[in-house]
Design a binder for these strands. Structure first.
Length: 541
DNA sequence: AAAAAAC
């Protein structure tokens, strides 16, 4: 078997590789490094987790070890589809170029141009970039790509998915015809084939088998989830997730929870946190510093649960994730492979559990067709979604109060004092006057029972926290009025503005929160039935 | 249907 020492890498690169603890290259490395060092174009077809990053980083450092970059004229260029991936490639350069004098710049969006400009001005050997920011620099005239000797396109199929191909073609056009190109893709879609035919010249084609590990070393399971009621589907699904997490016990050292939508990433992360889990969200709408911080924390082991959109599905190198949870069935089957590929890496064991909604069953079938394997059905660990479960347990609050109460609440609510001024002003005058005249101290019980913090939008509605997650006794006195158990309204949940509106006259008892957005303002006593339904219910009707 | 990426 080939060893790194036989690959003609620069001795200083080899030294760094050995110091990092590697001796034997992976198949993609063994296949890509020699032709790359000969100056040939390389077409690498490999999944994530196969070691392809080092497959281009090591030969690049070797080739760049001689010579120096001129101002604004980088000597090499690596393009990545996401910022995290670009950052990760940059780290690889740090690791393997530590004995070589090499300058690099990371050009990604979401951070200021200034530092990037400064580096470019001084001249860099390696430019690692996401396409948008690279072109941005170029268009501002800060960057000259005519001295690029090596260009790498990483995760090309993902670039395709993300609509970056025109940008990539443009960038190809800005670099010299004579450059060397290293091109990596997990699949060879027709469009990718076209690009490679256009921009690669007689490439060495290196293909490694589809990650066997994806379906073999990873234990997979799926829970077919049926909510007891549609309006409880979301919270029950989160409860199921918690049960799945809990069920893994100590075997779960760290995990990624994938959701299909950014909004769900936020909601799930917030919910888990509230229940005392060590969780944080990552997706493309969060600012870059937070993304970086969260990911760093996760890598360091400071963060246990990473709740992620598909920004984290591919390419991210998180060394040892014990579990992957798919909160949703991915709608592109191949995303499933990428997601679960975050666990069971490098021969370690991994476990991937998924929740499947009834409406996602066809997606599940697609996934199974792709991986050519049936995913084991797991019983729903929560057997008692039925009413009685919702009764006296810690779930009680969440389950019990909603529907029956909502009618009367919504009625009395429309006359109560808890509305924000501007909204109250929209209501009819008599009513407003009546409401306003009434001294607070004499608020009727009905009104009091109405004026709880129900304005919390569904996404933010605190779920009842379990006993062990009951922290915050300290509540500001302005809130003491709310006799709901302190634990059911965590201080860090969003609706603070809502609460502060509700402060005065708020002597109510604990009973009336827990609704969703089913209270209506401005409709007097009558509320059309459809208003109380979720969007889903309306659509289905 | 959604996510990602440029300001």
């Amino acid at each position: 078997m080939t060893k790194f020492s036989e690959l003609k890498l620069h001795p200083k690169v080899l030294k760094a590789v050995e110091e990092a603890g590697y001796e034997t290259p992976t198949p993609i490395q063994a296949g890509a490094i020699p032709p790359a060092l000969e100056g040939r174009d390389v077409l690498g077809i490999a999944q994530t987790g196969t070691g392809k990053t080092a497959g281009f980083v090591l030969p690049m450092i070797t080739m760049l070890a001689r010579g120096r970059a001129r101002a604004r004229m980088p000597r090499s260029l690596v393009l990545c589809p996401t910022r995290e991936l670009a950052a990760q490639v940059a780290e690889n350069f740090d690791t393997y170029a530590k004995h070589v004098k090499l300058t690099k710049a990371l050009l990604i969006g979401g951070v200021s141009f200034k530092e990037q400009d400064t580096l470019i001005d001084k001249g860099v050997d390696v430019l690692i970039a996401t396409p948008g920011r690279l072109l941005d620099h170029f268009e501002r005239g800060k960057l000259i790509l005519s001295d690029v000797k090596v260009m790498v396109v990483d995760e090309a199929d993902r670039m395709l998915d993300m609509g970056f191909i025109p940008d990539i073609e443009k960038i190809f056009g800005l670099t010299p015809f004579t450059r060397q190109t290293l091109f990596f893709s997990a699949t060879m879609a027709p469009e990718i084939e076209r690009i490679t035919n256009t921009f690669l010249s007689n490439p060495a084609r290196v293909e490694v088998a589809r990650q066997a590990s994806a379906s073999e070393t990873i234990e997979q399971g799926v829970v077919m989830f049926k909510p007891s009621r549609r309006d409880r589907a979301d919270s029950e699904k989160r409860k199921l997730l918690r049960a799945l997490i809990d069920g893994e016990g100590d075997k779960l050292t760290n995990a990624i929870v994938f959701c299909n939508r950014k909004m769900d990433v936020d909601v799930v992360a917030k919910s888990l946190k509230k229940y005392g889990y060590d969780a944080a969200p990552i997706h493309g709408d969060l600012d870059q510093s937070q993304r970086t911080r969260t990911l760093d924390g996760f890598r360091n082991g400071e963060l246990k649960l990473l709740i992620a959109s598909d920004v984290a599905a591919r390419g991210l190198d998180v060394p040892s994730v014990s579990h992957v949870f798919n909160f949703d069935v991915p709608s592109h089957a191949e995303d499933y492979v990428h997601r679960i590929g975050r666990t069971g890496r490098a021969g370690r064991e991994g476990k991937a559990l998924m929740i499947c909604n009834p409406r996602d069953e066809s997606n599940l079938a697609d996934v199974e067709r792709l991986i050519q394997k049936e995913i084991k059905r797991i019983d729903n660990p929560i057997q008692d979604n039925a009413p009685e479960s919702a009764a006296p347990t810690d779930e009680g609050e969440d389950g019990e109060k909603r529907k029956p109460r909502s009618r009367s609440r919504s009625r009395s609510r429309s006359r109560s004092d808890d509305r924000p001024e501007e909204r109250r002003d929209n209501r009819n005058d008599t009513r407003r006057e009546n409401a306003d005249k009434r001294p607070r101290a004499q608020d009727t019980a009905a009104e009091k029972s109405a004026d709880k913090s129900d304005a919390i939008p569904p996404a933010e509605k605190p779920e009842t926290a379990p006993a062990e997650a009951k922290p915050r006794e300290s509540r500001s006195d302005s809130r003491q009025a709310d006799s709901r158990p302190a634990d059911s309204r965590p201080a860090d949940s969003k609706p603070d503005n809502t609460r502060s509106r509700n402060r005065q006259g708020d002597q109510g008892n604990s009973r009336r929160r827990g609704g969703r957005g089913d209270d209506v303002v401005g409709m007097g006593d009558h509320m059309p039935g459809f208003i109380a339904m979720s969007f889903e219910e309306r659509r289905d009707d």
